[in-house]
Design a binder for these strands. Structure first.
Lengths: 146, 146
DNA sequence: AGACGCTATTCATTATAAAGCATAACGATT
DNA sequence: AATCGTTATGCTTTATAATGAATAGCGTCT
């Protein structure tokens, strides 16, 4: 059946897709993906009204800003464009009650960005909540066999 | 102000973005977004190994399939393309231990799709877990003032 | 005053995701 | 065997997100 379809489509290079799709199906049966362990994943975000303030990615960005002292090098470390990193920082700062970073434009070595006290507390709070919720979720998920 | 921007923007489209951005900044100050209530949002997913099985969207799709009896009309109801809905169903079924839906190709009124027992249990399990985790998160988040 | 390198901003390009379209295959029912 | 509306599939187009490049502006420090 799979061979048949391969032959039939031999004209155009739709072929490759078919083979890949077919292969994936075959492999998924061989490796028995159905028997892999089921798990629950979750993500949390801090919001202000309808505006996202912090999520996993932004927290990592904050942490790297704290380490490196600049948005620019934090972005580089995350292999993210400076533009996006800057926008993230802009947004989290705009919607957080207290500023999470303080940016310096110009000055020694061109300026830089540092994480405020509020920013550090936010990092800790995020990790704390994430860990608690994760643990709770795992515990509850085990009760739910279906 | 809205009128002004409308007039200005008429030449090129870029203008609109600038004005909107500006407007958003102005409005965000006026409405004092910083003082909006902070909250935590979360999302959960069921996984099999590294493969997503179910999330909020797929659960809704399942529910609509249950109601309507077909992927096609479920998709329509969610304003989602049939193609995507079909792919979602394909994937959730492939990676779930037990099939969540049974599809019939051809037959009475062209065929259809119905949710299996396992599918129904998954729907309930998902909502149950989501509710519990949500409640827990809200409770824990209130302890964390930062 | 000049250098440094970071923030700030725009614009064009590329990558990724979703939608839309067209059509074949299907099989119970009539 | 003709009908029906659905599943199944590939291809094209559109929409959205992210990247990349290019450059202005800044302010401390030497």
């Amino acid at each position: 059946m799979f061979l048949l379809s391969t032959i039939l489509y031999d004209k155009n290079h739709v072929l490759q897709n078919n083979i890949l799709t077919t292969l994936r199906h075959v492999l998924s049966n061989i490796t028995m993906a159905k028997n892999e362990k089921h798990s629950v994943k979750l993500r949390i975000w801090f919001y202000s009204g309808e505006n996202k303030v912090l999520g996993k990615g932004r927290i990592e960005l904050l942490e790297r800003i704290k380490e490196t002292g600049s948005i620019s090098s934090a972005a580089k470390g995350m292999k993210m464009s400076y533009r996006q990193a800057w926008q993230m920082v802009e947004e989290m700062n705009e919607f957080s009650k207290l500023p999470l970073v303080e940016k310096q434009l110009g000055g020694k070595s061109g300026g830089g960005t540092k994480v405020t006290e509020a920013g550090e507390r936010a990092i800790i709070a995020f990790h704390t909540l994430e860990n608690k919720v994760n643990a709770f979720t795992v515990k509850e998920a085990e009760k739910l066999k279906f």
